[in-house]
Design a binder for these strands. Structure first.
Lengths: 200, 200
DNA sequence: CCCGTTATTGACATGCCGTCAATAGACACG
DNA sequence: CGTGTCTATTGACGGCATGTCAATAACGGG
């Protein structure tokens, strides 16, 4: 028969939660977020569907928590550039590295980030987190960096840091997401290069 | 009572369809796509929910058709730049105008475009249309333009037209969507300027 | 070994979806 | 003007996924 999940097994809450998170992530490696259903996740865990709700509010809560495991890493990589020296050519090199590393993160966590982006369009809470915990923070950081560059005379003075940063971040985000966040399209040194080249 | 839609009224199919399209559009002026429900649309039409299915397969079909009313206009505006002369400073001016005009389209049809983008994450068919009827076409067009620029020596020769075009389009799309496609954030000459400035 | 704690689940209620047979406007024709 | 036909319209139904809750049964301590 099909619904046989074997005898009940009782796990420590923390283990169960990890199991579910892993199942969710595994699911997203194979399917887009739109196909993610609570049932679809839980069959992979040996637990019943209702068990899911003991640990997560809903599937949006799940992807949000998956994002937490990525957010830190993403920032760790970007800080290199954002807090780097303001020097001319040197800074340029740092930027290249940061972008490469950042892209690498996208390659690795692409499916999860992709899911977050999709979920943001479906759930107000996810949109909130996505926008404010990730995007907006990046924008603020980049804006600060730009301000410094403007003061140092590296960037033209008639640039609005805030608005320019927003453009930069959103633009990069979208392109990276489309390039690395989908199952079909995959890495390629070249594409990483293009990201950099396009940003000048 | 509340459910009283009055006596049945029989319309010409074409009128009914227009009415529903209008209702859908009006709905999107006030709510994000995620809140759009067939019932929510139909109450605005004086028709019953099932009537919807006589004209549209589902709500994704509805937004797709709404997009059709926008696509042509969007292209009409962009062609100016895409097919414009290859000249140096002159082309630059044309590009500014095209972007302004394009942004104008986003302001006007922002809610619909926004809905399409959101729906693309939820429905494979919409994603297909969004990507292939809009984004990909723009990419191809822009790539052609870039190729010409490269040949003419205007743009650096080590640029991959296809990949660069993809980056350009996706980047612009995202920024415009975020800037003009949301109820809160709204136009501003300055933002239009930034779009242009960031693209060099 | 037994018992209390609590992880787990079967069963239920809800909400929106998409379909279909039955109903009743509108128009054409006598 | 009737009156009959065509078809726009809808009430009612079945289905799928969600989120909740009371009942159940593992585990761990005594």
């Amino acid at each position: 028969m099909s619904g046989d999940r074997g005898p009940r097994r009782r796990r420590r809450p923390e283990e169960a939660e990890r199991t579910i998170l892993a199942a969710g992530r595994a699911f997203l490696e194979e399917h887009p977020f739109r196909e993610m259903t609570v049932e679809g996740i839980m069959v992979r865990t040996g637990l019943s569907r209702p068990a899911f709700y003991a640990y997560f509010r809903d599937r949006y809560d799940l992807v949000t928590r998956l994002l937490e495991g990525v957010g830190g890493l993403l920032f760790a990589l970007d800080w290199h550039w954002l807090s780097g020296a303001v020097g001319g050519d040197e800074a340029r090199e740092v930027l290249v590295d940061a972008l490469r590393a950042g892209s690498q993160t996208f390659v690795e966590y692409g499916p999860v980030l992709r899911a977050i982006a999709d979920a943001a369009g479906q759930d107000a809470k996810v949109e909130e987190v996505y926008r404010n915990r990730l995007i907006e923070r990046l924008i603020v950081a980049v804006a600060a960096r730009i301000s410094r560059d403007v003061e140092a005379g590296i960037s033209p003075g008639d640039l609005d840091p805030e608005e320019t940063a927003r453009a930069l971040v959103l633009m990069t985000e979208r392109y990276l997401l489309d390039t690395f966040g989908r199952p079909e399209r995959r890495p390629s040194r070249e594409q990483t290069e293009v990201v950099f080249a396009t940003l000048e």
